[in-house]
């Protein structure tokens, strides 16, 4: 193996990216775009000296994004004697920021826990990230026992908006989407600076700044009914670490402050399922058919309770009572016409 032959054969994507990373780590002062395109494996084969390299330049822009996406700190350095010049921008990857900090190490037990944590994302969103994180962990050469697979708790994110939202959040991009607010019949377009995505009480929430209201809002991912698009040119400065915990604390406080009291039909679906969420209230002895529930959003709980039909009766708060009754009446009246003849025998099957 003396030199890589200069043949114009196709260089694979990973070879080009790998070569680019190596070249940018090896350089102290950085490489200009022209230097990269003319010398680095995968580009140089397609570089036209003195010619038009527009498509190669676009390739380089995409590669830069892909590399940064993997957490590799690809930096742009402005030349001190010529600030603002695009032409003489230099690119490099500072080794100290590329490498794992020297004082970080993981024990075999910790590694096992991390492997289990990675398997939590079974499919879709963040499963690719977990997989790559595991590959990086494996490079440390720590041997660990595999976690017990018979019991593998997994998290599935069904909401299609999760992926574009979390990406926009990392990039500080403002997004727009159609949002069908619980309790409303028509969606409205929202423009939001996404700050955190939070799983609370089993539901994914987006926490962010509503650009039109200029205030913090919480959205349910399941109620985003159209594609999430980025607003061209609209960016914001992400709030940084702690935004997620802040959002969670707010939701928690809300959840604790709201309490609904409901009567459930013994033995029914509502009784079996809702009683598992029974709020623990000191000094209060709920009867068998009474359930107290904490909640964050009255309309969401009203939707759920209306689904139980006659199996539940809301006692309090009265706003919830009204909301559930209004929903039931709406559904009843929407189905009110026709089919009167065959009903009688079908009733009373519960």
């Amino acid at each position: 193996m003396s030199t890589i032959p200069d043949k114009p054969s196709r260089v694979s994507v990973e070879e080009r990216l790998f070569s680019l990373v190596l070249a940018l780590i090896a350089t102290e002062i950085g490489l200009t775009k022209a230097e990269i395109l003319s010398t680095v494996q995968g580009y140089r084969q397609r570089y036209a000296v003195g010619g038009d390299n527009a498509s190669l330049e676009r390739q380089f822009e995409r590669d830069k994004d892909d590399i940064r996406e993997l957490g590799i700190p690809l930096e742009t350095v402005e030349p001190p004697d010529d600030p603002g010049s695009n032409h003489h921008l230099r690119y490099r990857i500072p080794k100290g920021l590329y490498e794992l900090p020297a004082d970080v190490s993981f024990s075999a037990d910790e590694l096992m826990l991390l492997k289990l944590a990675a398997t939590v994302w079974r499919e879709g969103s963040l499963s690719g990230e977990s997989r790559r994180a595991l590959t990086k962990l494996n490079s440390l050469g720590i041997d660990s026992t595999d976690p017990v697979l018979g019991y593998s708790p997994t998290l599935r994110v069904r909401d299609a908006s999760f992926e574009p939202l979390s990406k926009a959040m990392d990039r500080g991009q403002i997004v727009a989407f159609q949002y069908l607010k619980p309790g409303e019949g028509l969606p409205r377009r929202r423009r939001v600076a996404p700050q955190a995505v939070v799983l609370h009480e089993g539901r994914w929430h987006l926490f962010g700044t509503d650009e039109d209201a200029q205030a913090t809002r919480t959205f349910l991912l399941s109620r985003i009914v159209g594609p999430v698009v980025t607003v061209p040119g609209a960016t914001f400065v992400p709030g940084g670490a702690g935004k997620g915990q802040e959002a969670l604390a707010e939701l928690d406080a809300l959840w604790r402050a709201n309490l609904a009291e409901i009567t459930v039909e013994p033995g029914s679906d509502a009784a079996v399922r809702l009683s598992k969420r029974q709020a623990v209230e000191p000094g209060r002895d709920p009867g068998e058919s009474t359930v107290a529930l904490h909640y964050t959003d009255l309309d969401i709980l009203a939707d759920e309770l209306a689904g139980y039909g006659p199996e539940v009766l809301v006692r309090s708060p009265s706003a919830l009572r009204t909301a559930v009754l209004a929903r039931l009446i709406r559904v009843r009246d929407a189905h009110a016409d026709a089919f009167l003849e065959s009903d009688a025998e079908k009733e009373g099957t519960e």
Partner: peptide
């Protein structure tokens, strides 16, 4: 050029952290 393991990306770290929170 390289002699150490690469760092995690923001999303990779988040995937593991959220997985740990869940566990």
């Amino acid at each position: 050029a390289i002699d150490d393991s690469p760092r995690f990306s923001a999303r990779e770290a988040a995937a593991l952290i959220a997985g740990l929170q869940y566990l």
